[in-house]
Structures are given as structure tokens and as C-alpha cells.
Design a protein around this nucleic acid. Structure first.
Length: 940
RNA sequence: GGGUCUGUAGCUCAGUUGGUCAGAGCGCACCCCUGAUAAGGGUGAGGUCGGAGGUUCAAAUCCUCCCAGACCCA
């Protein structure tokens, strides 16, 4: 028992049990109280910068897993770049305006909202958004994300809002903005536009009518069908609609290019119908006798002119992809002012966006036949008119799903209203954006195709919203012409100055005369606000203007892959519109979370995992490790089982660190570290391996391949260290004198491993990395240890560490596992328990013999056996087991139980136990280690 | 329906421009240790590389189709 006291066993306060959920908050407090982020900025000052621009999450609701992934990945990037020698500031942001927040206020206040004026409503939104920011901020911090949390950017900050107006002014000056018409959902009761989210679908009864659109030139029709002339005097295309009141705004009839149409003779007239639907249409129109004269694809009829059923207007046949054979006639009445698809196809054919309906839902003055009528009431009248003109083929009532206002529960209409657009074409914005896409590094590479297709296909950007909570489109329009003021850009800048002082209310409160003087009489303020995608999209301008540490273009944007349509997209367009360049040099995307079965997480499936639950039980570091370990370029699956696995991996890494720390107790690198050339060979190897691995780890960080880092570091802990190096090292660490060269050599290698590993894991396992850092010696090889691991750069190994050792360790490791197999066989036979119960004879081919010979007495430590001898392979006993495929390193192994007595100190079974009269229970080696400065080790 | 992707052992990932067996770690099973101990070590069993065709002397790696899944549109 007393001899145990002569051993150097591990000693450390670094707990095996991480207890992360409880301990991490203490670390957060320490980071905060010691202003680690602020100090880091000072430490990193003057280094080359790396700018990660933070895409602002929307300030509504608790953070979910997706937020966590995004923020943690950003944090890993920022921290790894910092350790890589960059100055990488991180200014987090929030997206604060917009409809969802308005809805939250409405929901919370109910009817009280109606009594709020716009100013009070905005104030309520502002307060709500701020609360949400605070909630989210706490969770982001809890995840261990390091950044300027005390000074984030928020799109509702007056400075940001002002810069946004300046950005808009710049885009205006560059000629990208125009005013146009676009149909939007319109509630007759709200008398305002509704967003998609404010529309719900309910059943409604509508008149469903089949209407004749007479062909102007029947000869042309016949020619297109390749049919002979017919006696029938009248030919018509038949459309089907459930909104008769939109017929006054009709501008075209759309057909499907690839749909087959039949020219049908009913005896009294010719009708054109989709072949597939003809029978059904004729049946409901009570046409009993008919024959098909000819058939043609829709594409053959493009451009055919038709007569509007009750106005003196010729309308063309056009082709649209939205035409289907689900119902109707295969011919779609097209009123670009009253339907989204009609609008889109109308743009293509440059159709007039006619809007005869006022905001009150009545036909405007000057509308022939229907002036002043309410649209839904007008249905009846329209049908009457159609009847009178002989255009009505059939009428019935249809119950169908129809959009309703979610507040009033009343049917809504599509109504063209004036909107502000950013044009993709008029100043070459599309071209500019597409060109810039090619200059950006997209990771993964397919992101370029994805966003490229979107930019290539997208229509002009509608930036106006008829809403309250947002940055105003601060334009003055002429009361008579509707045109924007000729000095709009300058006026926008002036408004920006006001907004910078008083926020967006400054626009609402503004007396036009203040800026326009006498002209004010002729102008009115636009009350629209901007699309929130514009808000966040100009972050590259707003934040760089307000924060000197953030510059544009950014080195990296990092968001979920949905942002190809979102923030990457809006940022690219605004930046191209303002500066004719992309706002980013590189874009990295991650996938979404799914469960282990590959399904997305949803409440209905009950497979949702919330980050709060994870960091309050397993700890943020475990969640961070999962994020880092997962290949985020695809979907990321998470389940309780996966978390369990990750937690186990975490423990392996942690315990490896603990073992290193425990054996480094009392080791002062400044005085105790040994020179590279004096290291025991295996320690030299360990240092080399560590150096090699660091190169791989650093390269993986630079490539954002974090999951490889996890694999490599974990493998290093399990295989190189646990499975070999540290296992072998134990004997030397424990049994040689504390200050002996043999032990100091081991500690020198372990010291460097610990120094390196703390840094490797710090960007990912930030809490644990910092915890290890604190348990490392207060002094380092270079001087005094810094306050935080994040102030460091990668470990600088001693000169020469990268030089590959001359000993063939690969061969030895292979041999070692062959020996282990033989030992296992012996163990399973019951002859031995521990490997120290065995001794091994090795019969080696020449090359291996060369490698092993120098080890001499130290060879047994490699196998952790009590004895190990090498012999030439010639004359090997028959029972020796063959091992090693490599011929030059071939070996035959013979393992057997040792007869010798066990040394009570080192547990090796040695023949020299008992030779010392002073220490009869010890082996010779232990006597040396107790009585002298210690044994000499050269190899292991 | 369209655009962009993904599918290798129970889990997480490797598999360079098609030609040595399809590999690693974890988990699992069994064993050992009890001086890293709610730790550590060893051995071992697990995959027809989503499915079906095709190109090729040769395919997890190329092509087609199908199935399942993700994101964004319609």
C-alpha cells in the first residue's frame, strides 16, 4: 500500500461529469462580466478582417432548432477565423418590422386595436419587437454564441431606418423604381389590401358561367384548325368563370399551349373547346347534336382575335401555363387586374391592367353598363347582359373554396392597385445581378444554379405594402398625375435625416409644406411602407454605415438554404441596384432539421426538439457538437437517440482532456518542458501526430467542414490517444519519478496535445474549451496564459514537430493490434486476465526486426505486456501465429502467460522481483525509480 | 406540376478524375481491468452502397426511370 504513494497518479479539479446545464450559465456570466467579446476586439485589432454579415432573424417567437443551427454555425465560423488569426467581429441583428408583428399586436389587443391610431399602433409593435429581441437574445447567448449582444443592429432603429431610406434614394437615383399596377387581395370591409397570411379559404356559392367569346375572323379560325369553311355564321371560344363581375376587365382568353382543342359544329354555331372537356360542356349546355370538325393544339390559336362579349373590344388568344383541364372549358378568361395568374401572363403579353373597381368595391365612374354597382351584386347584371347579347352558353351555381378576409370572414376580391416596383429590366438590374452571382463563391456549389434560376425568372419586385409597421416609401406623388415628385431622391434624403432623429413616425407626422413649400398643395404623401425583405436586404448598407467594424462586401453570408429566395436574393438585388455588385464574396448555406426518419419537424408529427430543452438538460455544448458533427449541407436529422450518441462522444472528448490535465498537474511548461530532440520516441511521435492533425483541423475549419473536425478529433481521442498513446503512457507517467526525464518527456507531449486540443474544440465546444483552458498551467511555453482561449491563435508547436519521426510507427501499430488479438485469444482461454499477465515473443521479417530491435527492454511497454522479445523469423516455433500482411514487416507472434512474480508497484510480472532486499516486493525497474533519479527511456 | 438537392452498416460520417477488396468512430455483443473508475482497454458481429434497368472488360462512383425525403416556387 505504501508503494502506491510513490506513484504519480492523475490529479485534477477538472470534473469528469460536465454538468453542462448547470455550469454553462456560470461561464456565460464570466464571459459577460469580463467583457470577453470587447477584449477580443482589442486583442484582434490590426489583424486582417473577416466579416460575417448576420442575417437578421425575425423578432417574433422563441428560437427554434433552425435558429440554433444558424447562430452556432456562424459562431463556429467567427471563432475559428479568430483562432486562425483574423479580426472577425460579430454584430448580431434582428428584423423587426412587418406583418407578423402587426398581427401579434392585433391578436393581443383584440378590439382595442381599432382605437389605436397609427402612431400608437407602431409604438405597440416597437415594444413587442423589443421584447422578442430580448427573449431571443438570451437564448442565443445561452447557446454560447459570442458577439456584440449589447449593441445589436435592429431594422427598427432610427439610424437603420434612415439608412434604409438613403438606400432607397440611391436605388431611386439609379432609376430602378417605378410605379405600376398589380392585383392584390382586397377586403371590401377593410377597404385595404390583405397579405396572403390574412386570407383564409372558405366555401362560397358563386355563379359558374360558360361564356362565348366570338371569333372576329372565322376564316382565320378555320385556317388555324386546318378545317374547311363552314356554313355556320358564328364561331366562339368558350370560357368558364366563377367571377362574372371580372368580365368588364377582360383583356384576353388564355389557352394551354399543349392542350388539344376541338372545333365543334353544333348545327347552329361553331364552338372551340378543350377536347377533353368538350363533352361535359356540351352536355351542360344542352347541346345534343354536334360533331368535331377539327382539332388543334392551343399553340395554333395564339393571337387569334376575339370580341369581348359586351364591350367594343378585341381581345387576343394567349397561352398560359396556368390553364388546366381540371374544370371549365380549357379556355380561361383573363383579367390582369383581377387575378394573380392573369396578371403574370398579362405581363408577358403586355396586356392592359384594367381596374374598373374602386376601393369601395363598386365599379368606378365611367364603367359602361355597371358604373356604381357593387361587384358581387353586379354578377347578376353581368349575366343578364351576357344573355341579352347571346353570349351566355350556360349558367349554374357552384359551391367552391374562395378566399375570405380573416378578420371580417367576408369574401375578398383581387383588385389592381398602385404599387411601387423595382424593375429587373429598365436599368439592367437582372443582368447586373446575374453577372455578380458568377463572382460569388457559393457553398455548396449548386447554390449558384438555384439563385441564378430565380433571378433569371423572377418578375419585378413589388416593394410597397399597404401597412403600418414599416419603413415608409417616403415619396410625394402629384395629386393629379400620380407621378412622384421630380426631386424625389433629394427629398428622400431629407426625410431620412428626419427619420434618423425621430424614427419612422417622422414621416407620418411630416407636414409636406416643410419640405415642399408652396408645392405641397399639389402633392400628397405616399402611405405605403416597404416590404420587409427590403429592410433586411439593405443590411449591407445600413449596418456598414452605422458600424465601422462591419464592411461591405462581406466575406460571408451564412443562412439556411431557403434564403436563396429570401435574404441572399433581396440583398443581392439591393446591392446590385445600389452599387452594381454583390454584397457578399461567399455564401454558405445549411439545410433544415428533420427527424431520424427523414421527416421534417412539425407539431403534428410530434417530433419537434426544442433547443431550450437540449441546453437545459444536456447542455449547449452537446447541441453545438451535434451541429458541428452533422453535415449541414444537407438536411440535418435529430432525435433523442442521436442526441444520446452525441452526448457520449462529448464525454469521450471531455475525459481525454481530463486525463491530459490530470497528468499535467505540477507540470510547468516554462521550466519542465523538454526539447524536441530529447523526447522519448513515442512522445515525439505523439507530437508529430498532433501537429499533423492540427493541419487537418485548421484546413477543415477554413473549408467550413466542421463535421470532419468532429470525426478527426474524436478519432484522435479514441484511437491515437485512448487506444494507444495514453494507454502506453500510463506506466511511465505513474511509475517514473515525478521530475524524471522519462516522465517530463511524456508530459511535454501531453502539454502540447492539451494546448492544441483546447483550441481545436473551442469554436465548437466553447464552454468546454474555455474550461480546459482554465485548467491548463497558468504559465505557458511562451509566458503567461491569457484570460480566454478565444484570445489565442492555433497552437504553435516547437520547431521541427512537423518532421516525421524516423521510427516506423505504422508498422508498430499494426503489429500491436496483431499482438492484442493473440492476447485476447489467451484471455478468452482463461489463461490470463490483464495483458500484463502475458509475455510475447515476436519472430520478425528483417525490416520489422530492424524497427523493433533498438527498443530492447522498452518494447514490452508498447504492448503493455510484462515481457517482449524479438527474434528473426527464421527458426520460429510452429505455434507462433502469423500476423502482418506486409511482407517486409511480416511477423509471427507467440503470447504466453508469464511465470514471474508481480511487482506490487508497477504490476509488471518480472523475474527480478524480490532481488532487492530493501524492496523485496518490487521489480528492478521500480527499485531504480524509487531509489534514483529514475530509469532512462528512449523509445516508449 | 416546376426549380435546387439528398438517400453508403443501428447512429454520425470517409470513399480523390469509375478498376485491392466498401472504410472509420460511436453504439451493440462478449471479455479484461479496477492506479483516467458513473472512467479505461481488447476482441467480434453488423452494409446486395434507396430500388430497377443501362453504358463499360470494370460502377457506391457515369446515364435513364422509379421510390422516399428536404428547401423554394406554382
Amino acid at each position: 500500500m505504501e508503494y502506491k504513494d510513490t506513484l504519480n497518479l492523475p490529479q485534477t479539479d477538472f470534473p469528469m461529469k460536465a454538468d453542462l446545464a448547470r455550469r454553462e450559465p456560470d461561464m456565460l456570466k464570466w464571459w459577460e462580466e469580463n467583457s470577453i467579446y470587447a477584449k477580443l476586439r482589442e486583442v484582434a485589432q490590426g489583424r486582417p478582417t473577416f466579416i460575417l454579415a448576420d442575417g437578421p432573424p425575425y423578432a417574433n417567437g422563441a428560437i427554434h432548432l433552425g435558429h440554433s443551427i444558424n447562430k452556432v454555425l456562424k459562431d463556429v465560423v467567427v471563432k475559428s477565423r479568430t483562432l486562425d488569426g483574423y479580426d472577425a467581429p460579430y454584430v448580431p441583428g434582428w428584423d423587426c418590422h412587418g406583418l407578423p408583428i402587426e398581427h401579434q399586436i392585433e391578436k393581443a389587443r383584440g378590439k382595442e386595436v381599432k382605437s389605436l391610431d397609427a402612431r400608437a399602433f407602431r409604438q405597440a409593435c416597437r415594444e413587442y419587437a423589443m421584447e422578442q429581441v430580448n427573449i431571443q437574445r438570451e437564448d442565443f447567448k445561452r447557446l454560447g454564441v459570442m458577439g456584440d449582444w449589447d449593441r445589436p443592429y435592429m431594422t427598427m432603429q432610427p439610424r437603420y431606418e434612415a439608412e434604409q431610406l438613403r438606400a432607397f434614394a440611391r436605388i431611386w437615383r439609379n432609376g430602378h423604381v417605378y410605379k405600376g399596377l398589380k392585383p392584390v387581395h382586397w377586403c371590401l370591409d377593410c377597404r385595404s389590401a390583405l397579405a396572403e397570411a390574412e386570407v383564409e379559404y372558405e366555401d362560397k356559392n358563386s355563379p359558374a358561367i360558360d361564356v362565348r367569346f366570338a371569333v372576329k375572323d372565322t376564316a382565320d379560325l378555320a385556317k388555324r384548325f386546318g378545317a374547311q369553311g363552314s356554313s355556320a355564321s358564328r364561331a366562339s371560344l368558350v370560357i368558364w368563370t366563377t367571377t362574372p363581375w371580372t368580365l368588364p376587365a377582360n383583356q384576353a382568353v388564355a389557352l394551354g399551349a399543349d392542350i388539344k382543342y376541338s372545333l365543334i359544329d353544333t348545327g347552329s354555331e361553331l364552338l372551340v373547346l378543350a377536347s377533353e372537356l368538350a363533352e361535359a360542356v356540351l352536355k351542360r349546355a344542352d347541346v345534343t347534336d354536334s360533331k368535331v370538325l377539327a382539332q388543334a393544339a392551343g399553340s395554333a390559336l395564339e393571337g387569334l382575335l376575339l370580341a369581348h362579349p359586351f364591350y367594343e373590344r378585341a381581345v387576343p388568344v394567349i397561352l398560359g401555363e396556368h390553364v388546366t383541364l381540371d374544370a371549365g372549358t380549357g379556355a380561361v378568361h383573363t383579367a390582369p387586374g383581377h387575378g394573380h395568374e392573369d396578371y403574370v401572363v398579362g405581363l408577358k403579353y403586355k396586356l392592359k391592367i384594367d381596374n374598373p373597381v374602386g376601393s369601395d368595391g363598386r365599379f368606378v365612374a365611367g364603367t359602361p353598363l355597371f358604373e356604381g354597382e357593387r361587384v358581387f351584386d353586379a354578377n347578376k347584371h353581368v349575366i343578364e347582359v351576357l344573355k341579352e347579347r347571346g353570349a351566355l352558353l350556360h349558367e349554374e351555381t357552384l359551391r367552391h373554396s374562395y378566399p375570405h378576409c380573416w378578420r371580417h370572414k367576408t369574401p375578398v376580391i383581387f383588385r389592381a392597385t398602385a404599387q411601387w416596383f423595382i424593375s429587373m429590366e429598365q436599368k439592367g438590374l437582372r443582368q447586373s445581378a446575374l453577372r455578380e452571382i458568377g463572382k460569388v463563391k457559393w457553398m455548396p456549389g449548386w447554390g449558384e444554379r438555384r439563385i441564378g434560376n430565380m433571378i433569371a425568372d423572377r418578375p419585378d419586385w413589388v416593394i410597397s405594402r399597404q401597412r403600418t409597421w414599416g419603413v415608409p416609401i417616403a415619396l410625394f406623388t402629384h395629386k393629379a398625375t400620380g407621378e412622384a415628385h421630380p426631386r424625389s431622391a433629394d427629398l428622400l434624403d431629407q426625410v431620412a435625416t428626419l427619420v434618423e432623429k425621430d424614427g419612422i413616425d417622422a414621416w407620418a407626422d411630416l407636414d409636406p409644406a416643410k419640405l415642399l413649400g408652396a408645392e405641397a398643395e399639389q402633392y400628397e404623401k405616399v402611405t405605403d411602407i416597404m416590404d420587409v425583405w427590403f429592410d433586411s436586404g439593405v443590411m449591407h448598407h445600413c449596418v456598414t454605415q452605422a458600424r465601422p467594424e462591419i464592411t461591405a462586401p462581406a466575406d460571408l453570408y451564412l443562412e439556411g438554404s431557403d434564403q436563396h429566395r429570401g435574404w441572399f436574393h433581396s440583398s443581392l438585388l439591393t446591392s446590385a441596384a445600389m452599387y452594381d455588385r454583390a454584397p457578399y464574396r461567399a455564401v454558405l448555406t445549411h439545410g433544415f432539421t428533420i427527424d431520424e426518419k427523414g421527416r421534417k419537424m412539425s407539431k403534428s408529427l410530434g417530433n419537434v426538439i426544442v433547443p431550450q430543452k437540449v441546453f437545459n438538460s444536456l447542455g449547449a455544448d452537446v447541441l453545438r457538437l451535434w451541429i458541428a458533427a452533422t453535415d449541414y449541407s444537407n438536411e440535418m436529422s435529430l432525435s433523442d437517440e442521436i442526441l444520446k450518441r452525441v452526448a457520449e462522444s462529448y464525454r469521450r472528448i471531455r475525459n481525454t482532456a481530463r486525463f491530459l490535465l490530470g497528468n499535467l498537474a505540477g507540470f510547468d511548461p516554462a521550466t519542465d518542458a523538454m526539447a524536441l530532440d530529447d523526447l522519448v520516441a513515442v512522445d515525439r511521435w505523439a507530437l508529430w501526430r498532433t501537429q499533423q492533425l492540427q493541419e487537418e483541423v485548421v484546413a477543415a475549419y477554413r473549408d467550413y467542414q466542421f463535421h470532419l473536425i468532429y470525426q478527426k478529433v474524436h478519432n484522435f481521442c479514441s484511437v491515437d490517444l485512448g487506444g494507444f498513446y495514453l494507454d502506453v503512457l500510463k506506466d511511465r507517467l505513474y511509475t517514473t519519478p515525478a521530475k524524471s526525464a522519462a516522465r517530463r518527456s511524456a508530459q511535454t507531449a501531453m502539454y502540447w496535445i492539451a494546448e492544441a486540443m483546447a483550441r481545436w474544440i473551442a469554436p465548437i465546444l466553447s464552454f468546454t474549451g474555455e474550461e480546459i483552458w482554465r485548467h491548463l498551467s497558468p504559465t505557458t511555453a511562451a509566458g503567461k496564459r491569457g484570460q480566454s482561449v478565444f484570445f489565442e491563435t492555433w497552437a504553435q508547436f516547437p520547431q521541427g514537430a512537423a518532421v516525421r519521426p524516423t521510427v516506423d510507427w505504422d508498422a508498430i501499430l499494426e503489429l500491436r493490434s496483431a499482438v492484442a488479438r493473440e492476447i485476447e485469444r489467451l484471455r478468452n482461454s482463461g489463461a490470463i486476465g490483464a495483458s500484463l499477465d502475458a509475455e510475447v515473443d515476436l519472430y520478425c521479417a528483417p525490416a520489422l526486426l530492424q524497427t523493433l530491435k533498438p527498443f530492447g527492454e522498452e518494447l514490452r511497454f508498447v504492448f503493455i505486456t510484462s515481457g517482449a522479445r524479438v527474434h528473426p523469423s527464421e527458426g520460429r516455433p510452429a505455434e507462433a501465429a502469423p500476423a502482418q500482411e506486409d511482407e517486409s514487416n511480416a511477423a509471427w507472434i507467440l503470447v504466453r502467460p508469464t511465470e514471474a512474480a508481480k511487482c506490487v508497484r508497477c504490476w509488471h510480472k518480472r523475474p527480478d522481483v524480490g532481488q532487492s532486499t530493501k524492496h523485496p516486493e518490487l521489480c528492478g525497474r521500480c527499485v531504480t525509480n524509487i531509489e534514483t533519479a529514475g530509469e532512462v527511456r528512449k523509445y516508449t
